[in-house]
């Protein structure tokens, strides 16, 4: 199967939020229904819930700005997992609970393997994964890989009435997005862009952003936190250096086999440090050592147990 992608054309979106509802239905995710349950108070926006959460994988965003050919830019945005080509969440996940579906390139999850560490949330350049505290697992769009494997489109795409969402081979979605963005620019929407072809290794959610990336709530230049790769480097480095340390210590132990040391005693009256068995004076007084490093290393003959003069 070729790499797949969702195409979201903001110029065709009616803001009905059917995709949001479909996502909830297909994934059996509840919606808080109490008054102001999602936001602390009424915010005056049509956007609801205000952001992604442990039970919300897709939020349509609504942004109004002055400008554009018609005097106002009402920009709908799609806030959900972008299914990065170089998915840092999958890279950093220690449990293998977030992984790239090889057949489609979509970044999916296996809640049964999730350990709730939230490393993925710290790695995501789009701030997408959310912790579902009641279940102790992370929550994010799976790309509906179960549906895709059975020949269906993701639930959000299937339900989209105005045809703003489509699903298909990624190359085709990218080509269509670029073509549509060019058409929009010709019609006077100078900031219209196709988004997602190259970002973070190539996203699997391609978007036509009528008023430009920022207006639709997208990051113009998303970047993965370098700490994500560094933590991955630390694993083999720690393993290798620890292994070397153990090997070195084992060698020291092997070379130290048969080591014996004569007993020592100190006579404060004379200031002599003595070898109890041979009665030799090992050192007189408490002065600093006067041998060179080389002499220390080469003094392997018992008769050279020298003492310091003071």
């Amino acid at each position: 199967m070729a790499e797949k992608a969702i195409l979201f054309d903001t110029s065709q979106c009616s803001g009905c939020k059917g995709c949001q509802a479909a996502c909830k239905c297909w994934n059996d995710l509840p919606s808080p229904t109490a008054l102001n349950a999602d936001a602390p108070s009424f915010t005056g926006t049509y956007q609801n819930p205000p952001d992604l959460s442990g039970v919300t994988r897709l939020v349509m965003t609504f942004s109004e700005e002055q400008g554009g050919p018609k005097g106002i830019k009402w920009a709908f945005g799609r806030r959900s997992c972008q299914h990065c080509g170089d998915a840092p969440c999958a890279t950093i996940c220690p449990a293998g609970a977030i992984f790239v579906d090889e057949a489609t390139g979509l970044v999916t999850t296996d809640a049964a393997r999730c350990i709730g560490c939230r490393f993925c949330a710290s790695a995501c350049p789009f701030d997408v994964p959310r912790y579902a505290g009641d279940r102790g697992v992370i929550n994010k769009c799976t790309g509906c890989v179960d549906r895709v494997a059975n020949g269906l489109a993701p639930a959000c795409v299937t339900t989209c009435q105005p045809g703003a969402l489509s699903f298909g081979d990624r190359d085709e979605m990218v080509a269509r997005a670029e073509e549509r963005a060019a058409v929009l620019r010709e019609r006077g929407y100078a900031d219209a862009v196709a988004y997602g072809a190259d970002e973070v290794g190539g996203l699997h959610v391609i978007q036509v952003l009528k008023y430009g990336a920022a207006a639709h709530g997208q990051r113009p230049d998303p970047a993965v936190n370098p700490a994500v790769q560094l933590t991955q480097v630390m694993k083999p480095v720690t393993g290798a250096v620890t292994g070397l340390t153990v090997a070195g210590l084992a060698a020291m132990f092997a070379l130290g086999a048969g080591y014996k040391r004569d007993r020592r005693a100190y006579n404060p009256a004379t200031g002599d440090t003595l070898d109890v068995d041979t009665r030799e004076v090992i050192k007189h007084g408490d002065g600093q050592d006067t041998e060179s490093v080389k002499e220390h290393i080469l003094e392997n003959l018992p008769r050279r147990k020298g003492g310091d003069h003071e």
Binding site: A265, N267, D272, E291, E295, K305, G307, H309
Partner: peptide, 24 residues
């Protein structure tokens, strides 16, 4: 400069020997 074996005086040697014997 090397650490050369210290040669105690006769009195020191006696004191050291007595010290070790007393300890034993």
């Amino acid at each position: 400069m090397s650490n050369e074996a210290y040669v105690p005086t006769a009195a020191e040697a006696r004191a050291d020997e007595e010290f070790l014997r007393a300890q034993e």
